[in-house]
Computed example of a mutant assay.
Amino acid sequence: MSSVIEQSVQARMVASAPRMETLPAVLSYDRRNPFAVRMVFPAPATLEDTEVSWEFSRELLTTGVDSPAGQGDVRVRPYGFQRTVLEFHAPEGIAMVHVRTEELQLFLQRAQELVPVGDEHRYLDLDGGLTDLLGGAC
């Protein structure tokens, strides 16, 4: 079994114009980093024409599908019955995208099958992390 889950999703960028632009994005979950989820937007979908990646907690996404969650750079909340809003706060501004809730729930289910909630600590490489932190001194 692979240690990484990737799932393509269609995100809709919320802008001041009434039309929302559809953006491809990829959600990924790696059991070697069991508390985190990553969402990547490809270069053509960004203003800077470079790939943009946001990493945030799996718990934030899980909670945000059902009720507003987050106070920092990433915030998640339900929008109606079929969509979830993800807000990405950066010094340059705020990007808001809508994603189908069903797609997020499928992704979270797959992550749960790979690493059950509550078992994340079993997948942490604490020795490797300390070695990296100390510059290989361990």
Rank of each mutant, 00 (worst) to 15 (best):
L60M: 07
R38A: 15
A36I: 03
T62W: 08
Q82F: 15
T62Y: 10
R77F: 00
S53V: 13
E51L: 08
E92Y: 04
T84K: 09
R77L: 00
V85H: 08
T84D: 05
T62N: 12
D49I: 05
G80R: 02
S67M: 08
T50L: 13
V85S: 09
E92N: 08
Q71T: 14
F41I: 10
E92C: 06
E59C: 05
P78W: 13
P34A: 00
M96F: 06
L60P: 06
P78A: 07
V85R: 11
G80V: 07
P44D: 10
F81S: 13
Y79M: 07
V37A: 00
G72C: 04
P78G: 07
P91F: 10
F88H: 05
E55W: 10
G64V: 00
M96W: 08
Y79E: 12
H89A: 02
A45K: 09
F56C: 03
E55G: 11
P42Q: 05
V74A: 13
S67H: 06
L86C: 02
S57I: 07
V85Y: 06
E55H: 08
G70L: 03
F88Y: 05
V74N: 08
P44K: 09
R77K: 03
M96A: 14
L47N: 14
T50P: 09
L60W: 09
E51W: 12
T62D: 14
P42D: 03
L47H: 14
Q71S: 13
V65G: 00
G93C: 00
F41E: 06
W54F: 03
E51M: 12
T46Q: 09
R77N: 00
G70K: 08
R83I: 07
Q71R: 10
D66K: 09
